[in-house]
């Protein structure tokens, strides 16, 4: 099966001399849910900009479903739907007009454009706002409007640049459900996000970009397996003694009822509970101190710095 996206030795040097991409290569398989992560200024948006023609590349090759953008960019563009980070529609236009016009730019006949616009605006909960000028919509609605617009030509590759920025938790969760559904229906999705919880919840593969280089490119599961240790926060039923020592584990008393325990790779939580049991400590709840992916991300990015 041909990959949805192939990037080979992609480089970008801006006019001011800033080298945003230093010859990165990666591939996204068809049907994948792929996360492109990296700190601000790492090169994520430059990469996306090149794929969808808003940024010119300095060198390298980009192929979308095997169509080289240097050979036939219009054909490649038909495969791509893009949801940018910033709102990029005319704020004075009505929501329905924005989506229908976008269909027109892809050459869709008017009847089909209206049919699809209704379908996606309904699915994204915007149909009742179809005649509202975009500037009157809330931040979350604007974000969903951009998703509806990006899907109007039914692209096989959907690229979302920070889709959850400025979106409340409920809205984010419903957006996740929607994205999972279209991914299950066969659309390949590439996502950049600062919410690592989002990447962990949605994506199967991940590439981490830093200072214009790919520092990791693997599956989320494989990445998490690389974690050398995890730190758990335990809420305890009774007041803890001043010093808590758990055999085989590094434990730290946070407050009267809270304990922090470091579990090394290869150790099991059963062992932690056995050690707690032996000390007569009863646990009411537990959680990770930080998102696991976040910990891995920080390690990789700081390690590369």
């Amino acid at each position: 099966m041909i990959p949805a996206l192939t990037i080979e030795n992609l480089s970008k040097v801006y006019d001011n001399g800033f080298e945003a991409l230093k010859g990165i290569s990666f591939e996204v398989k068809q049907g994948d849910f792929f996360a492109l992560l990296g700190p601000n200024g790492a090169g994520k948006s430059t990469t996306i900009g090149i794929i969808c023609s808003l940024v010119g590349k300095t060198g390298g090759r980009v192929k979308v479903f095997d169509v080289d953008i240097d050979v036939d960019f219009p054909a490649a563009k038909r495969y791509i739907g893009i949801v940018p980070q910033e709102f990029n529609f005319n704020q004075f236009e009505k929501a329905l007009d924005i989506v229908v016009n976008q269909a027109g730019y892809y050459g869709l006949p008017s009847a089909l454009a209206r049919e699809r616009a209704e379908k996606y605006l309904r699915e994204l909960g915007l149909w009742d706002q179809r005649d509202v000028p975009a500037r009157m919509l809330s931040g979350g609605m604007k974000r969903r409007l951009m998703i509806a617009r990006s899907l109007i030509h039914e692209p096989q590759l959907l690229i979302l640049d920070e889709p959850s920025a400025g979106v409340d938790i409920e809205m984010r969760r419903s957006m996740w459900t929607f994205l999972r559904r279209i991914n299950e229906q066969g659309t390949t999705i590439i996502l950049t996000t600062h919410y690592l919880e989002e990447a962990e919840a949605l994506c199967r593969h991940i590439a981490i970009i830093n200072h214009g280089n790919i520092v990791e490119n693997t599956s989320i599961k494989a990445l998490l397996r690389q974690l050398s240790h995890e730190v758990f926060i335990l809420d305890c039923a009774e007041s803890l003694p001043e010093a808590v020592a758990l055999e085989g584990f590094v434990a730290r008393r946070v407050d009267d009822h809270t304990l922090e325990v470091e579990v090394q790779k290869g150790q099991h939580l059963n062992q932690v509970f056995a050690a707690l049991e032996s000390k007569g400590i009863r646990v009411t709840s537990m959680r990770n101190r930080a998102n696991r992916l976040e910990e891995m991300f920080v390690n990789l990015v700081e390690g590369a710095a």
Binding site: C52, S53, L54, F73, P74, A75, K77, R78, I80, I82, P84, E86, F87, N88, F89, N90, N101, Q102, Y105, Y106, G107, R149
Partner: peptide, 10 residues
């Protein structure tokens, strides 16, 4: 930036 609607299309 709404010109991007046109620039990303074919």
């Amino acid at each position: 930036h709404s010109v991007e609607e046109l620039l990303v299309s074919p």
